[in-house]
Every structure is written in C-alpha cells, then in structure tokens.
C-alpha cells in the first residue's frame, strides 16, 4: 500500500462508490419502467418513461460511452418524451386507463412470452463472451462518426429509412384526419 492511499481514507475514495451508483442506475431504470407500465394516468406513464431513460443514460455512461449517454437524454427525454406528452395533451382528456374484458388466456400467455424472452436473454448473456478486457475504442464522437459512416453505414442508412417511413406514415394519418 503506497502512502497516497493511506493519506486518503476509504471514505474519501470514489472507487467504492462506483458500484453503488451503478446499482442506483439499474434501480432507476427498473422503477421507471414499472411506473411507465403500471400507472393509471398517462402523464405519469410519461414521467416514468423519462425516469427510465435517465437510468439507461446512466448505464451508457458506465459503459464508457458518455456521447451515447448524452444523446440518450437529449433525444429521448428532450424530444421523444416531450412529443409523447404533446400527443397526450392533443388527444381526448381521458383520465383512467381503459381496461377492457380480457380473455382467460391473456395472463398465462403473457407470462409465457415474458418468461421465454427473459430466459432467452439470460442464455444469450451467459453464453456470449463479452470483450470486456478489449476496449473497442474511446467512444468519442469522432470514432462513432467514422464507424457509422464506414463499417456500419448499412445500419445507419436502414435506420434513416425507418425514420422516413415513420414520417410518411404520420403524414398519411394526418391527411386522413383533415378530410373528416
């Protein structure tokens, strides 16, 4: 043990806190997701979604990618959540969630699907060899930009087509509404 570690007692070191903060981020993500799914009022669901997004941004930060973390907040909290709130406010003011009569099979089927997905992800997570030791790159904007326009340009273009389809779909729906 070198003198510098003796000089600063354990309480003042940040390294021990990192694990705690990571767990807090995981908890924020899960709690936000639960609020988003289970709340009665739609605006509260949006609030839950915002909390969830912030938790996910925190996880990205831990994965050594501050750029993606900041983009997560900027796009999902600043744009997507605000747009969803707009949609809610423009729609009919409905207080309670509509819960229609569901079939007997809905519960077991839902549970089975969830179990299958969770199991599949668990198997995937355990079987994959995670390249933790190999740091891919420094996660800087320049590297991400280069990768997106060289190795992953196909994915990049496909994503932009998805966005284009979404915009066209929104226009079509809006057009129909105008004729009514």
């Amino acid at each position: 043990m070198n003198p510098s570690t003796l000089a600063s007692p354990a309480f003042f070191s940040v390294d021990g806190l990192v694990g705690v903060v990571f767990l807090i981020m995981v908890a924020i993500t899960i709690v936000g997701g639960l609020i988003a799914c289970n709340s009665e009022r739609l605006v509260r669901s949006v609030a839950g979604l915002v909390v969830c997004f912030i938790g996910v941004a925190g996880l990205y930060f831990f994965l050594n990618s501050p750029f993606v973390a900041m983009m997560q907040i900027l796009i999902y909290v600043g744009a997507v959540a605000v747009t969803i709130s707009f949609a809610i406010m423009l729609a009919a003011p409905e207080e309670k969630k509509k819960i229609g009569p569901s079939s007997i099979l809905a519960g077991p089927l839902g549970f089975a699907t969830a179990a299958l997905l969770a199991g599949g992800f668990a198997v995937l997570a355990l079987r994959t060899e995670w390249p933790i030791l190999k740091k891919l790159n420094d996660g800087s904007m320049k590297n991400i930009g280069l990768q997106l326009l060289t190795d992953y340009s196909m994915v990049f273009e496909l994503v932009s087509i998805v966005l284009l389809v979404a915009i066209l779909g929104a226009l079509v729906i809006a057009r129909q509404g105008r004729e009514n």
């Binding site: 501050p66 900027l74 909290v77 600043g78 959540a81 605000v82 709130s85």
Partner: peptide, 22 residues
C-alpha cells in the same frame, strides 16, 4: 471538464421543458 461538454449542457437543458409540462 467533459469531452462531450456541449452535449451535456443541451441534454440537461432539454429536461427543463419537462418540468414546465409536469
């Protein structure tokens, strides 16, 4: 000091409108 400083400030500034909304 962060390498994504500009982004960080705009990311958190964009959260301000959520507060007005709520």
């Amino acid at each position: 000091n962060m390498s994504v400083g500009v982004l960080m400030i705009f990311a958190f500034a964009s959260m301000g409108s959520m507060s007005l909304l709520f």
